[in-house]
C-alpha cells in the first residue's frame, strides 16, 4: 500500500483562532477515508487547504509524491484532486451537460470527447435524462449529484466530498453511497467529510475525528466509533 495523500502537521489560524492545528494523516490508494467531527471542528478548512482554496500556515501536503501546499486550486485539480463544495455550486445558468463538460475538459482537449465523458458520468449518477435542464432548476439532491458528476468528470485520482449527503433523504443517501462504493471499486480514492453517520459507517474504511481543529482519533470504523474520547466529544453530543 502506498499513501496517495500525506498530510503532515498542517495548521490554519484565522485572526489568531486555530481552525486546524497540526493535523497529520495518510490516505492510502483505494481508501474511502472519512473525516468527521462536530460543526466548527475545522473539517472544511482542512478540505480547503488540501484543495488549494486556502494556503496552510504550516505543514506539508503531499499528493502522489508531490508537495502541493501553496499551489493554486486549479493546479491541484489538474494534478488529480477533484472536489465538491459544501454549499453546492454548479454553474447555475448552464445546462447539466455543459456543467459536466467543463469538468471533463480537464481530461481531454476536444469538446467532442468531453461530451462523451460527460454523458457517461451523467448516466452513472442518474442525471442523464436531465442533461438538457438548466442547472439552477434542479432539486437539491440532483444538484448535489451534479456537483459530484462535475468533479468526477475531471478524472480525479482523489475525490474530496464535502458533506454531499447532508440534507438528503435516506433513500437518496443510499443511492449516492452505492454510487460511491461502485466508483471506489473502480479504483477511485475518496476523502469525505460527512455528518450522516449512516453513510460514514457504510462507506469508510478509515475515519479521522477532528475536534476543535485537532485530530483526536484515527483508525478503522470499529476502533474509532468505540473510542471513549470520540463518543464523549462528538458522538455523544450528536446523539443527545
Amino acid at each position: 500500500m502506498t499513501a496517495l495523500l500525506t498530510i503532515d502537521g498542517i495548521s490554519k489560524r484565522f485572526r489568531g483562532l486555530a481552525a486546524v492545528s497540526r493535523v497529520s494523516f495518510e490516505v492510502q490508494q483505494g481508501d474511502i477515508f472519512a473525516v468527521i467531527g462536530p460543526n466548527g471542528a475545522g473539517k472544511t478548512t482542512l478540505f480547503n487547504m488540501i484543495a488549494g482554496a486556502l494556503p496552510p500556515d504550516e505543514g506539508s501536503i503531499t499528493f502522489a509524491g508531490q508537495q502541493i501546499q501553496g499551489l493554486r486550486s486549479d493546479q491541484i485539480a489538474r494534478l488529480g484532486v477533484g472536489r465538491t463544495f459544501q454549499l453546492v455550486r454548479p454553474f447555475p445558468a448552464l445546462t447539466v451537460e455543459d456543467n459536466v463538460i467543463i469538468g471533463a475538459l480537464m481530461q481531454t482537449k476536444t469538446v467532442h470527447d468531453a461530451e462523451k465523458i460527460a454523458r457517461d458520468t451523467l448516466a452513472r449518477l442518474d442525471l442523464f435524462d436531465k442533461r438538457a435542464q438548466i442547472a439552477s432548476s434542479l432539486t437539491l439532491p440532483d444538484r448535489k449529484r451534479l456537483e459530484v458528476a462535475r468533479a468526477l468528470a475531471t478524472g480525479p485520482k482523489l475525490l474530496l466530498l464535502d458533506e454531499v449527503m447532508a440534507g438528503l433523504r435516506p433513500t437518496e443517501t443510499d443511492r449516492i453511497v452505492a454510487t460511491l462504493r461502485d466508483l471506489n471499486r473502480g479504483g477511485l480514492t475518496i476523502l469525505l467529510i460527512e455528518h450522516v453517520m449512516r453513510a460514514v459507517t457504510a462507506l469508510a474504511s478509515r475515519i479521522l475525528v477532528l475536534h476543535h481543529g485537532a485530530a483526536i482519533a484515527e483508525g478503522n470504523p470499529e476502533q474509532v466509533l468505540r473510542d471513549p474520547a470520540v463518543v464523549e466529544s462528538y458522538l455523544g453530543a450528536e446523539s443527545l
Binding site: 482554496a53 489538474r78 455550486r89 467543463i102 480537464m106 462535475r150 468533479a151 475531471t154
Partner: peptide
C-alpha cells in the same frame, strides 16, 4: 471558485 476547482486557470 468552482471553475478553479474544475482545473481552470
Amino acid at each position: 471558485e468552482a471553475a478553479q476547482a474544475a482545473g481552470i486557470d
